[in-house]
Amino acid sequence: MERHLSLIPLSHEHKRLLFVCRYLKRDAAPYEGFPLETQAKLAYVVKIFQEVMVPHIQKETYLFEKCAGKHPQIDALIQELEEEHRIISGMYGVLAGSKELDADMDKLARHLETHIRKEERVFFMLLQEHLPDILASLQWQP
């Protein structure tokens, strides 16, 4: 199924965040222009979380609010995704003081990747199937 137009901006952000996930994993392959030193990776993840992840979660919160209370399966998934947002934010929050930074970045990357895949493969598909009118009414802020 093709992605609904209103979800495409979120999917593009997911794609960028999935790159971050690959980059943060312990077994990350070298990427041109991206250092693999731990502190450089931390600086990059801090930048991306501020520039992409925080606004992304705000957009998803807006999406959750618009879709809540319309379908029981979607409501249950919204609760799961909101809890995952809290967990991922908490994992990010401990990086600055981490004594096992490589392991903690790897753990964050794996959790975030699983979360994004669930949103793309399950949540967005349910929205497109059951709430197309809600999706058509979404107004994203620039």
Rank of each mutant, 00 (worst) to 15 (best):
L101W: 07
F123A: 05
Q79W: 01
E82S: 14
I116E: 03
E119Q: 05
V122L: 11
Q73K: 15
L112P: 01
I74W: 05
H111K: 06
L127Y: 09
C67D: 11
M125L: 12
M125D: 06
E82F: 00
K107C: 07
S98P: 09
E119Y: 04
E80S: 11
D102H: 01
I74G: 06
Y92S: 02
L127V: 10
A103E: 14
D106V: 06
E83T: 11
K99T: 13
G97Q: 13
A96H: 14
D104T: 07
S89A: 12
H115S: 02
G93H: 10
F123Q: 03
A96C: 05
P72D: 11
M125G: 00
I87L: 15
M105E: 12
E113M: 05
A68W: 02
S89H: 05
K107G: 00
S89G: 15
E82M: 13
E84H: 11
Y92C: 00
E82P: 00
I88F: 07
E113S: 09
D104Q: 15
M91V: 01
G97P: 06
D75F: 10
L108T: 08
E84W: 00
L101S: 06
R110H: 04
K99R: 15
E84P: 04
F124H: 13
V94P: 00
D106Q: 08
F124P: 04
A76T: 11
G97V: 07
I88Q: 05
D102N: 10
I116D: 03
L126W: 10
L101C: 05
L108V: 05
A103R: 08
G93Q: 12
G90I: 07
I87E: 08
V94G: 03
K70M: 10
R86Q: 11
R117T: 04
A109T: 09
E65D: 13
L77F: 05
K70Q: 15
K118F: 03
K70F: 05
